Simulated assay, not measured.
Amino acid sequence: MPTPLDRATSARAPFFAFAAIVTAVAAWSIWGGDIFPSQDLTGDPENWTHEECTRWLQNRNLHPSPLATTAELLERVKANMRIPRNG
């Protein structure tokens, strides 16, 4: 006669729940919490604030200096922007 422990270990639901948890933790560690990245800034960088320039550089792992002025950040943003090519 099976005991409650035997029935619990032979059930499939706990196994799939455990597998789902392990998969979720693995996905979180692989993507580092950036599963849904924030939207990228668009428009003319001349109109961006200091925080927006800093966020744009951080999104590209360009490590903006916390002591940099807005003009310095804007210069780095412009230097690292991709210019779309026609044709």
Rank of each mutant, 00 (worst) to 15 (best):
Met1Ser: 14
Pro2Gln: 10
Pro2Lys: 04
Thr3Ile: 04
Thr3His: 02
Thr3Lys: 03
Pro4Ser: 09
Pro4Val: 09
Leu5Cys: 10
Leu5Val: 15
Asp6Thr: 15
Ala8Val: 08
Ala8Cys: 08
Ser10Pro: 00
Ser10Thr: 13
Ser10Val: 04
Ala11Leu: 13
Arg12Gly: 07
Pro14Trp: 06
Phe15Trp: 10
Phe16Tyr: 10
Ala17Glu: 09
Ala20Trp: 01
Ala20Lys: 03
Ile21Pro: 00
Val22Phe: 09
Thr23Ile: 14
Thr23Trp: 12
Thr23Asp: 04
Ala24Thr: 15
Ala24Ile: 11
Val25Trp: 05
Val25Asn: 06
Val25Ala: 10
Val25Leu: 13
Ala26Glu: 05
Ala26Tyr: 05
Ala26Phe: 11
Ser29Phe: 11
Ser29Val: 07
Ser29His: 11
Ile30Asp: 03
Ile30Ala: 00
Ile30Ser: 01
Trp31Tyr: 12
Gly32Gln: 02
Gly33Phe: 02
Gly33Ser: 04
Gly33Lys: 08
Gly33Pro: 05
Asp34Trp: 05
Ile35Cys: 06
Phe36His: 07
Pro37Met: 06
Ser38Met: 10
Ser38Val: 12
Ser38Lys: 14
Gln39Arg: 12
Gln39His: 11
Asp40His: 11
Asp40Lys: 09
Leu41Glu: 07
Leu41Gly: 03
Leu41Met: 03
Thr42Gly: 13
Pro45Tyr: 04
Pro45Ile: 00
Glu46Ile: 11
Glu46Lys: 15
Glu46Asp: 15
Glu46Val: 13
Trp48Val: 09
Trp48Asn: 04
His50Thr: 14
His50Tyr: 10
Glu51Asn: 07
Glu52Ala: 00
Cys53Tyr: 03
Cys53Trp: 06
Cys53Leu: 13
Thr54Phe: 07
Arg55Cys: 03
Arg55His: 08
Trp56Tyr: 03
Trp56Ser: 05
Leu57Thr: 00
Leu57Cys: 01
Gln58Cys: 06
Gln58Phe: 06
Arg60Ile: 07
Arg60Leu: 03
Arg60Val: 04
Asn61Leu: 06
Asn61Ser: 15
Asn61Tyr: 09
Leu62Phe: 06
Leu62Ser: 05
His63Pro: 03
His63Leu: 08
His63Glu: 13
His63Lys: 09
Pro64Phe: 07
Ser65Met: 05
Pro66His: 03
Leu67Trp: 12
Leu67Thr: 14
Ala68Tyr: 00
Ala68Glu: 06
Ala68Met: 07
Thr69Gly: 00
Thr69Glu: 01
Thr69Cys: 00
Thr69Lys: 06
Thr70Ser: 05
Thr70Asn: 01
Thr70Tyr: 00
Ala71Lys: 14
Ala71Gln: 13
Leu74Glu: 08
Glu75Asp: 13
Arg76Ile: 13
Arg76Cys: 07
Arg76Ser: 11
Arg76Trp: 08
Lys78Val: 09
Lys78Ala: 12
Lys78Glu: 12
Ala79Phe: 07
Ala79Thr: 04
Asn80Pro: 04
Met81His: 05
Met81Ala: 05
Arg82Tyr: 12
Ile83Asp: 12
Ile83Pro: 02
Pro84Thr: 02
Gly87Val: 09
